[in-house]
Structure formats: structure tokens, C-alpha cells
Design a protein around this nucleic acid. Structure first.
Length: 356
DNA sequence: GTTCTAGAAC
DNA sequence: GTTCTAGAAC
């Protein structure tokens, strides 16, 4: 059974044991003997994976924690391996990690001790050896309109066990994982190659996984996390977003043949307010499951106009309860309202409503 | 948000 | 046996 230690490089205290898949929070305190007030009491969260041979390092404090001198930023995390150096805060208080085989009392390496098994340890939840690469090739193959799929979300690379110490991968980790997947829109909207329109207030990008032949997202430059954060002063911005969305439709060569809707998801997965502009063909390989379908065809999809009117009426935007349950409703055609038993059958059915 | 896969449904 | 979904992991 391997075990993992966090070693103080300047030997200021004893090694700290990092149990398998358990989070350990460290910072200023007796355990590290750090007294520097730039270091939070809860500066980092560490989680060692003994099977994969890395420690996930997440910065919790305000001041920078770094791995190999690259600052993480609050809330961000990277995987740290043997040979890499962690600085707890401000490039100070250096640490390394070590993974070693524990030698049991009978001298056998790796033998399980009784009553020490736990299900998580014995059945690693992470598949070993998966090294995900951006799926641009397959996505583009599936549909040209899918556009670029360059890793703004859902593309967390993992190292291959055959190359566990390759430093390049750690550097990629830092770049690609610098933020949770739900922050992906903030990355995409800043990427000029994703932008299809921009002005001083908003930017439009193609949805990376379009659920129809035409699917854009209109995002304000202003950082607004969700509908809940909207205030009366945002009314004109929302109107502008809707106008830009309508412009996107007008310039679309299919505008005369396809119907479009403009609206917001009641409970979006991605952070940063975004207006969906989506054609109603739902003809896309990226539309794969009940959640996808119901998020655009039930009241989970809130019309842009309704959001604006609510903001004008009440000064804020509230989302009704029970929205999440709408995602589990049976699959029903949005045109003829006929129920379909499975996604493949629904997709086959939708063909009959496509323009000829 | 997507991917992956166990196991339910057929 | 295969297809499909739901839930976990990221």
C-alpha cells in the first residue's frame, strides 16, 4: 500500500501524512509552524491519490499558493507530482511530495492490513490511464457547425501512468485546469477565435456543443454570475443582448426556414449570464439526453422577453421552484407535442418537422 | 457543461 | 444479446 508525505523543504517541521483521497487543509498553524499572516489558516487543500501518484493542490487563501512557481489563484487547483515544488504562499514555505511503498510488519510491501480497507481505496473512482485530449476532431467531424472545441470546459487532462512524471503535462494541467469547468464560458468569451460578434457591451460566441443547427450565446462583458445577480440597472443591457441575438438570427442564411428562440436556462450549469439564441430544429449530434432536450423545450427555458419584463416589473429576476424537476419530464416533441420514449426515437421523429 | 459506464430496459 | 439512461467524476 503506497503512502504519501508532504515534506517541508526547509525542514521546518515533520513530514505531514496525506491519506489516500482525503482532503487535508493546511496553512498558518502549529502543524506547519507558519506564523506569517499572509498565509491563511486554511491556505491550501491537498488531496493525495496514492494510486495515480499525485496530490491535488487547491488554493483556498487569498494570497498566492504556487506549484513550480506558477501561482494557482484562489479556488484553482493543479495536480502536483514528485519533483515539483509547492510554495504555501508568496513563493515562501517550500514543500515537495513523496510517494513510498509502506513496508508492513511481516516485511511484505503492499500487503493489505486487516480492517484498513475502505471501498473507495479498493475501487478507485478514477479510471487509470485516461488522458483526454481536446475533442475538436471528432466534434468537427460530427458537425461543422459544432465549431471549435478547444478545451474551455470539460477537458481536464489526466496523465498516463506510463509517463507519470512528465513535466509538460503538469504545465498543461495548470493552464487547462486553471478554473473549474463551469467557468469555461468566461474563457471562451475572451478567445477571439470563438467570438462571432462583439461590441462595447456584449460578445457572441457559438455554443461549443450546439444543440441545434444554429446555437449562439450572447454574453455581457460585465461579470454577472447568474440571473439572480441581475438588478434593475441591467434592464438596458438585457434588451441590448436580445437585440444582438435577434441580429444574429437576421444574418443567418437559414433565418427564413428555421424558427429561433432567445432565452435563458432557469438553472444554468455555466457561470456568467448567457442568452441562448437557438434554432428550433434541434438537429445536432450534441443533443444527447433528456436534460438537453427539456432544458430547451420546457419552462426551464425562460424567454428573454419574460426576463426583461420581470426585471422591469420587480427590479430583479426570480426563478420559480421546481425547475430542476422539469429536466426529468418525459420527452415530448416541441412541435406536435407527441411523446417519444427514447432520445434516439425523438431525434428520428424530429426529422419530420425539418424544413424541406 | 461533457464524458464515461454500470446496469436497467428492451 | 444490444440499446439506452442516469449518475458520478471531472
Amino acid at each position: 500500500m503506497p503512502f504519501c508525505l508532504l515534506l517541508s523543504e526547509d525542514d521546518s517541521h515533520k513530514p505531514i501524512r496525506l491519506p489516500h483521497l482525503q482532503t487535508v487543509i493546511l496553512g498558518r498553524g502549529p502543524e506547519t509552524k507558519i506564523k506569517d499572516h499572509k498565509c491563511s489558516r486554511e491556505q491550501v487543500e491537498l488531496r493525495a491519490d496514492h494510486n495515480e501518484g499525485y496530490v491535488r493542490v487547491k488554493q483556498l487563501g487569498v494570497n498566492p499558493t504556487s506549484v513550480d512557481f506558477v501561482a494557482l489563484g484562489k479556488g484553482n487547483q493543479v495536480k502536483m507530482r514528485i519533483g515539483q515544488k509547492l510554495h504555501m504562499v508568496n513563493q515562501l514555505y517550500p514543500y515537495t511530495v513523496s510517494f513510498k511503498e509502506e513496508v508492513s510488519a511481516d516485511g511484505n510491501k503492499g500487503s493489505k492490513r486487516p480492517h484498513q480497507e475502505n471501498s473507495e481505496e479498493e475501487s478507485p473512482t478514477q479510471r487509470p490511464g485516461t488522458y483526454k485530449v481536446p475533442k475538436s476532431a471528432s466534434t468537427e467531424k460530427a458537425r461543422d457547425q459544432c465549431g471549435r472545441a478547444d478545451g474551455a470546459s470539460g477537458l481536464h487532462r489526466q496523465p498516463s501512468p506510463s509517463q507519470p512524471l512528465k513535466k509538460e503535462l503538469s504545465i498543461i494541467d495548470k493552464k487547462v485546469n486553471s478554473g473549474h469547468w463551469n467557468q469555461g464560458l468566461k474563457v471562451s468569451m475572451q478567445d477571439p477565435s470563438m467570438q462571432v460578434y462583439k461590441d462595447e457591451r456584449v460578445v457572441v460566441i457559438q455554443d461549443k456543443y450546439p444543440k441545434a443547427r444554429h446555437h449562439w450565446l450572447v454574453l455581457p462583458w460585465e461579470s454577472i454570475s447568474s440571473l439572480k445577480a441581475l438588478q434593475a440597472e441591467h434592464r438596458d443591457l438585457l434588451v441590448h443582448m436580445q437585440n444582438v441575438g435577434n441580429k444574429m438570427v437576421q444574418q443567418c442564411p437559414d433565418a427564413s426556414r428555421l424558427h429561433f428562440r432567445l432565452g435563458y436556462h432557469a438553472i444554468p450549469s455555466m457561470s456568467h449570464v448567457h442568452l441562448h439564441v437557438i434554432s428550433q430544429d434541434f438537429d445536432s449530434p450534441c443533443l444527447k439526453n433528456k436534460k438537453h432536450w427539456n432544458s430547451f423545450t420546457t419552462d426551464y427555458f425562460i424567454e428573454s422577453q419574460d426576463v426583461i419584463e420581470m426585471l422591469e416589473r420587480t427590479g430583479n429576476v426570480s426563478v420559480k421552484e421546481g425547475m430542476a424537476e422539469l429536466l426529468k419530464l418525459p420527452l415530448r416533441c416541441h412541435v406536435c407535442h407527441k411523446e417519444q420514449s427514447t432520445i434516439p426515437k425523438l431525434k428520428e421523429h424530429l426529422k419530420c418537422h425539418l424544413p424541406t
